[in-house]
C-alpha cells in the first residue's frame, strides 16, 4: 500500500496547478523513489516530468509499485478543499480503485477526508536521454514568466538566443517586434535574482509562446528556473523543488 504525507498541501496544489492545463489524465507512479509522473500533451510537442522524492514526504511508505491513474481536474477540485499549510496524506491500496486524501489542519483538530476515483490509463513510458546542452541558463522564474507573457502579447513564437554575455528573448508580430535581454549577473546577496549562463557554445532556437506561458504556471514552485538549450533537441525547463522537480520539454519550431 501507499501512505505518503506532505507537510504542506501547497506542494501538491502547486504541482497540479502547474501541469493541469497541459495534461488532462495521467498516472502518478508511486514506488520506492517517490511519486513520479510523465506525460505528453495532446499535441505531442511538449512533455512534463515530475518527481516528488521520498524526502518530500514524512512518512513515506510504498510497498510495491502503484500507478494511480488520475484526472487532474478532479484532483484539483479535491485539493481546493485543502488549506495551503494543511498536512496532506495520500493513501492507496496495492490495486486501488480510489486515492484517499486526508487534510489535517495544523492549527485545530479539523480532519477532512476525500476519495478520488481512479482510472486505468494506458500510458507510454518514455526514456528521457541524458543530454549535454549547449547552454544552460538559470534565472528568476518571475522574470521568465514576465518575459513570456509580455512577448506573447506581440507574437506566437519567441526566439531564444544564449551567448556568453546574456540571454536574449525576441519576437516579431503583426504590430511590431520586441526583445528582452538579460545580462549574465551574479547577485551574491540575493542569489535567486541572478542570471547565470553556463555555455558550451552559443545557441539560438525558436519556440511557441503558448506553451512557454503555460509552463510558467509552475513559477510558484521555485524562485528560479533553469533553461537548457541545444540545437534541434527539445528545450528543457526545470523548476526545482526542495525534494523534487517539475520539468517541461518543448520541441523547437522548425525553419530557423
Amino acid at each position: 500500500m501507499l501512505e505518503a504525507r506532505l507537510e504542506q498541501a501547497a506542494v501538491l496544489k502547486k504541482v497540479v496547478d502547474a501541469i493541469k492545463d497541459l495534461v488532462q489524465d495521467c498516472n502518478f507512479d508511486c514506488n520506492d523513489s517517490g511519486i513520479q509522473l510523465q506525460a505528453m500533451d495532446n499535441s505531442h510537442v511538449a512533455l512534463v516530468a515530475m518527481h516528488l522524492k521520498t524526502d518530500a514526504f514524512s512518512p513515506y511508505r510504498c510497498d510495491r509499485n502503484i500507478a494511480l491513474g488520475i484526472n487532474l481536474a478532479s484532483l484539483q477540485k479535491v485539493l481546493r478543499a485543502a488549506q495551503n499549510d494543511d498536512l496532506l496524506t495520500l493513501k492507496a491500496e496495492d490495486a486501488p480503485d480510489v486515492l484517499n486524501l486526508v487534510f489535517e489542519s495544523a492549527e485545530n483538530d479539523r480532519i477532512a477526508e476525500y476519495d478520488i476515483k481512479l482510472m486505468d490509463i494506458d500510458q507510454e513510458h518514455l526514456g528521457i536521454p541524458d543530454t549535454e546542452y549547449a547552454a544552460t541558463v538559470t534565472m528568476p522564474s518571475s522574470e521568465f514568466q514576465r518575459i513570456c507573457r509580455d512577448l506573447n502579447a506581440l507574437s506566437e513564437s519567441v526566439s531564444i538566443e544564449a551567448a556568453k554575455e546574456g540571454i536574449k528573448f525576441s519576437c516579431q508580430g503583426d504590430i511590431g517586434s520586441g526583445a528582452v535581454t538579460l545580462r549574465q549577473n551574479n547577485n551574491v546577496e540575493k542569489p535567486d535574482l541572478s542570471t547565470i549562463i553556463e555555455l558550451n557554445e552559443p545557441v539560438g532556437l525558436t519556440f511557441s509562446l503558448k506553451y512557454l506561458v503555460n509552463f510558467c504556471k509552475a513559477s510558484s514552485l521555485s524562485n528560479t528556473v533553469k533553461l537548457s538549450l541545444s540545437a534541434e533537441v527539445p528545450l528543457l525547463i526545470e523548476y526545482k523543488m526542495e525534494s523534487g522537480y517539475v520539468r517541461f520539454y518543448l520541441a523547437p519550431k522548425i525553419g530557423d
Binding site: V45, L126, P234, A251
Partner: peptide
C-alpha cells in the same frame, strides 16, 4: 507532424 516525430525520436519509448 515532423515536430511530433522529432519529439518521438528524442524520447524513446521504453
Amino acid at each position: 507532424t515532423s515536430t511530433q516525430a522529432r519529439m518521438q525520436d528524442f524520447f524513446k519509448a521504453i
